[in-house]
Write a protein that binds this DNA or RNA. Structure first.
Length: 105
DNA sequence: CAACTGACTCACT
DNA sequence: TAGTGAGCCAGTT
């Protein structure tokens, strides 16, 4: 078991995700960039996938470059994530958000 | 040490 | 407008 602690990269990712203010969202590439790992969008997604801080990290605020929620979402379905976002004031339409309005920059 | 996988992104057809 | 291919990064085996 190599867990019990996360990799430095994941720590940066979680930190960046936590930096996302309520009512805002960010793309995987955005997280990678603000975490100091430009172009590591895939690694970010992977880090969140194994996210041990689920519940502590608002991964539901992380969307892809299209503003769409993860199709293979692990929260319990896109519906759950959509509900969380809407509860924060983010308007989710057809499982997508308006990055121009809600993307944190 | 090398190879495979993946919640991604961009460009082309 | 939709689908496919190639590229980049980090982690795991």
């Amino acid at each position: 078991m190599t867990d019990r602690t996360v990799t430095p990269f994941a720590a940066d990712v979680y930190k960046a995700v936590t930096e996302i203010p309520k009512g805002k969202v960010a793309t995987y590439a955005q997280i990678a960039l603000m975490s100091g790992h430009r172009g590591a969008a895939r690694a970010v997604g992977n880090a969140l996938h194994v996210n041990p801080f689920f519940g502590s990290v608002p991964c539901h605020r992380v969307v892809n470059a299209s503003g769409a929620l993860a199709p293979d979402f692990a929260f319990g379905g896109v519906d759950a994530q959509k509900r969380l976002l809407q509860d924060e004031g983010v308007v989710v339409v057809d499982g997508r958000v308006d990055l121009e309005e809600y993307q944190y920059r």
